[in-house]
């Protein structure tokens, strides 16, 4: 969403609109990050063709990032409103464990009910975050840092040293986590649907646009008479529900869950959103960017060992990527505002 029309040309019809669309596409952050992803995949595939061209390689490429994509989409929605949700890792942990317990404690429970339960628990935990932020007027960073530990604590209390194993789960459910429809894993299909629906909502619904407005300038949103409190609640609720969905799918994908499931996922999700061009101060970016960011993050992690870069450097590379993304944003926006000021000086 970084359209910079510095020259105020009146817009023509037809070809003009197409050209403008093309320029927007080429300049957009999502395109850049997608290009980076393609380059990473290309280089790694040249080094080791099975990274892309073996059946497992192709499947892993799509399957591995799918859960993070879900969490990153939720995170992006919250960050767009100028908040952040650090508790998502713990929410994934709780809902993943809930999934296991439901299959063990309620034999024969329909899979769809488990999905609903996981998402409902996630939504409730997200709503609690949102309520504390919206009504307590405390920065989300602090609130969700608190619930990060609180939710994890509940998980530890509940699970203790128990763990749910793959053998406790129904085969149909586990199949959902690994099998594919025409080479595309179910998990990836679910993630893709979520990304498209969330992206459509944020772009085309009043509620979605208001999330951007609130993040862009909260005071102005108040002056406009937008329902700021309600929107923030909704953003956190969606984020929680998506983390809940991710938790259920985590159980399906890996089979094993314990009290530490999902630890650290929150930072990966924030990182993915930032890399994907979601401004940490809210108001701009898309869930598409966040999703591609998530894929890039995990693909790099898998590519580095193949390229012969030691484990030791992997985290540093991810860190550099995040800092690079933020510096890039800052430099671009500074340059833009400077340019606009000097243009005004000249015309005045």
């Amino acid at each position: 969403m970084t359209t910079t029309t510095s020259t105020q040309t009146p817009t023509g019809a037809g070809g003009g609109a197409f050209q403008r669309g093309l320029r927007t596409f080429l300049r957009s952050r999502e395109t850049g990050i997608l290009a980076a992803l393609v380059i990473v995949v290309l280089i790694t595939t040249i080094k080791n063709p099975s990274f892309l061209f073996s059946q497992d390689g192709f499947r892993d490429l799509l399957l591995t990032p799918s859960i993070l994509v879900l969490v990153a989409v939720g995170q992006a929605i919250v960050i767009i409103t100028r908040s952040v949700d650090l508790s998502v890792g713990s929410v994934v942990g709780l809902t993943a464990y809930l999934t296991g317990r439901l299959f063990i404690d309620v034999p024969g429970i329909p899979i769809i009910v488990v999905f609903a339960a996981g998402m409902a628990l996630g939504a409730a935990l997200g709503l609690l975050n949102g309520a504390l932020v919206a009504f307590g007027k405390v920065p989300a960073l602090v609130i969700t840092l608190g619930t990060l530990y609180a939710y994890r604590g509940i998980n530890v209390l509940w699970a203790g040293s128990n763990r749910v194993n793959a053998s406790d789960l129904p085969k149909d459910f586990l199949a959902l986590g690994t099998s594919a429809l025409l080479f595309v894993p179910y998990l990836t299909i679910i993630a893709l649907i979520v990304v498209l629906v969330a992206g459509w909502y944020l772009r085309n619904q009043r509620g979605g646009r208001e999330l951007y407005a609130i993040g862009s300038d909260p005071d102005a949103a108040q002056l406009y008479g937008l329902g700021v409190t309600r929107r923030i609640l909704v953003a956190f609720l969606l984020c929680g529900a998506l983390a809940g969905l991710a938790g259920v799918l985590f159980a399906a994908r890996y089979g094993t869950t314990n009290s530490q499931t999902g630890t650290g996922l929150e930072l990966q999700a924030v990182g993915a959103a930032v890399i994907g061009g979601v401004a940490i101060f809210g108001g701009s970016g898309t869930v598409y960017g966040a999703a591609i960011g998530a894929v890039l993050l995990l693909t790099i992690n898998r590519a580095l060992p193949i390229l012969g870069i030691p484990d030791f450097w992997q985290q540093a590379v991810v860190g550099t990527l995040i800092i690079g993304a933020i510096v890039l944003d800052r430099v671009l926006s500074l340059r833009l505002s400077r340019q606009l000021i000097s243009e005004r000086e000249v015309s005045a």
């Binding site: 009043r206 646009r209 407005a213 862009s216 300038d217 102005a220 008479g225 937008l226 401004a279 108001g283």
Partner: peptide, 20 residues
């Protein structure tokens, strides 16, 4: 004026009551 800097001019005018 209090506008939303990240959003387009059009969106700023119609925020909250966009035609649907």
């Amino acid at each position: 004026p209090t506008l939303f800097p990240d959003l387009s001019v059009t969106e700023n005018i119609f925020m909250g009551r966009q035609p649907t």
